[in-house]
């Protein structure tokens, strides 16, 4: 799967993006038989560039995929992870779906709201935290579950959640690693994680190297 070559108009649309993002764009467009398929990954790249999905970002993605702005907006707004407002440095997502709910997720959420001073669905004034409740994260065996920039901690209690918030606020780690957080603040897990891996998130964008928000990429 060869990286795509971009036309002049396409390059123009992302001329203010970083070189690494421009390279990602080429690679992503090369991964699909139809460039429209790259809309979703490209939206993530646009979030890396702009912090969230901006109108300009959507316009750029529209140019890259041959769509109208309305079409890109239609896709972006369908999915929960394409955030449309500026986010805090740490996006803290608390699962409050059924299994987590049964094991006290609402208390975990309340503790996080209280400790951060940021109500559910909002971003704090200092830009450190965005707090949200989310639906099931596929970790019900380790309920309740919290994600920080989509990196997971399982078996969180209200107390541990407060500590997690403090650690984030005071330590302000640049890379949020799931293993580290799990060790410090986690409890029961859905299954044996077995082995530590070095990667983690540097942004509230899923840290999946092909889209860029992993350690070492930006």
């Amino acid at each position: 799967m060869k990286p795509a070559t971009l036309s002049e108009a396409e390059m123009d649309a992302i001329s203010d993006w970083s070189e690494s993002s421009q390279q990602l764009v080429r690679e992503l467009l090369g991964k699909y038989p139809d460039k429209r398929s790259a809309v979703m990954p490209l939206l993530y790249v646009s979030m890396i560039e702009n912090g969230y999905v901006t109108a300009e970002g959507m316009k750029s993605v529209a140019v890259l995929t041959g769509l109208t702005g309305a079409q890109v907006q239609s896709v972006a707004s369908f999915y929960s992870m394409y955030k449309r407002e500026e986010l805090g440095k740490y996006l803290v997502s608390v699962c409050t779906s059924i299994s987590c709910f049964l094991l006290g997720a609402d208390d975990v959420l309340a503790a996080i709201e209280d400790e951060t001073g940021v109500p559910d669905g909002e971003t704090g004034h200092d830009g450190t935290f965005t707090v949200e409740h989310v639906e099931c994260n596929g970790a019900c065996g380790g309920a309740p579950v919290v994600l920080v920039n989509y990196e997971m901690v399982e078996g969180v209690t209200a107390e541990k959640a407060r500590e997690l918030v403090k650690w984030l606020r005071d330590g302000g780690p640049d890379v949020v690693g799931t293993e580290e957080m799990q060790q410090l603040f986690g409890g029961a897990k859905s299954f044996d994680w077995a082995v530590r891996e070095p990667e983690g998130a540097v942004l509230p964008v899923p840290a999946f190297a092909p889209y860029g928000s992993a350690r070492g990429v930006k």
């Binding site: 398929s37 990954p41 769509l67 999915y79």
Partner: peptide, 27 residues
Amino acid sequence: VTVHLGGGAYICGEESALLNSLEGRRG
């Protein structure tokens, strides 16, 4: 093989919604 990451929508587990999503459409 292309590894594709979803965007946060349970309905994309339904196979035809998943295909729409993979085509760069609403799921």
